[in-house]
Design a protein around this nucleic acid. Structure first.
Length: 208
DNA sequence: AATCTATGCAACCGCCGCTTA
DNA sequence: CTAAGCGGCGGTTGCATAGAT
């Protein structure tokens, strides 16, 4: 527990905000020589004026050599949609099935690309049902995207999906039975393929 | 060309569970 | 048994920039 949250420290020695190239190099160099360890100690030992949490986040999401950056592939996108529909926002679990992708990247991708289209689609369906648009807008924040968190589509907790050696689509868990009255999935609203094709210009990046 | 708006992403925040002394 | 420290997670924010007007 963060009884004394690091970020609230008054210590002027603790830097926050974007990492500099120099800081990146220091962290990478230290981990290359000493390995990952207790992050708070690592930060001090490396001479970084950062919190352990900040170092860990930077390393895991950006500096780690096996981190893959760039466009999400169609296979990855399908997997994200499928796993999110089953597990909800358990990004770390989802990330385990996408080698080289971080939970933060998947989370951002979901919120900025997929969620947006879900809301648009929902609003379209709501309009089709002649429900006043104000109802559909009620769940959007100042960006109009955040509130899809309220779309609770988790159906089952993550379980052992057969190990991490599986390749993308072969790792797809069996689809949930739609007759679970307490749960529903993205697929219940529209087919995944139509979701992708509905992404318009974005779809050009996902063509196989 | 200048201004406004939307978008993407890196990083921060706060909470929780586990471990250890 | 309990308190403190740490790692980890999900949600949120702020900034840079691309695109629209």
């Amino acid at each position: 527990m963060d009884k004394k949250p690091c970020y609230r420290t008054q210590d002027p020695q603790v830097r926050k905000g974007p990492w500099t190239l120099e800081e990146d190099l220091i962290l990478m160099d230290y981990i290359a020589n000493h390995g990952e360890g207790v992050w708070n100690s690592l930060a001090k030992a490396a001479g970084l004026q950062r919190t352990g949490k900040s170092c860990r986040l930077r390393w895991l999401n950006y500096l780690r050599p096996d981190v893959r950056r760039g466009n999400i592939t169609p296979e990855e996108q399908l997997l994200i949609i499928h796993l999110q529909s089953m597990w909800g926002n358990r990004w770390s679990e989802i990330a385990k099935h996408l080698p080289g992708r971080t939970d933060n990247e998947i989370k951002n991708y979901w919120r900025t690309k997929i969620q947006k289209h879900i809301i648009k689609q929902s609003e379209t369906e709501i309009n089709d049902l002649t429900i006043p648009p104000s109802s559909a807008n009620a769940c959007t924040d100042h960006r109009g995207v955040s509130a899809a968190n309220t779309i609770e589509i988790a159906c089952s907790p993550p379980s052992d999906q057969g190990g991490s050696g599986e390749t993308m689509l072969s790792a797809l868990p069996p689809a949930q039975e739609p007759n679970d009255s307490a749960c529903w999935s993205v697929e219940d609203l529209w087919p995944i393929q139509s979701l992708i094709s509905g992404m318009g210009d974005d779809a050009q990046y996902y063509s196989v």
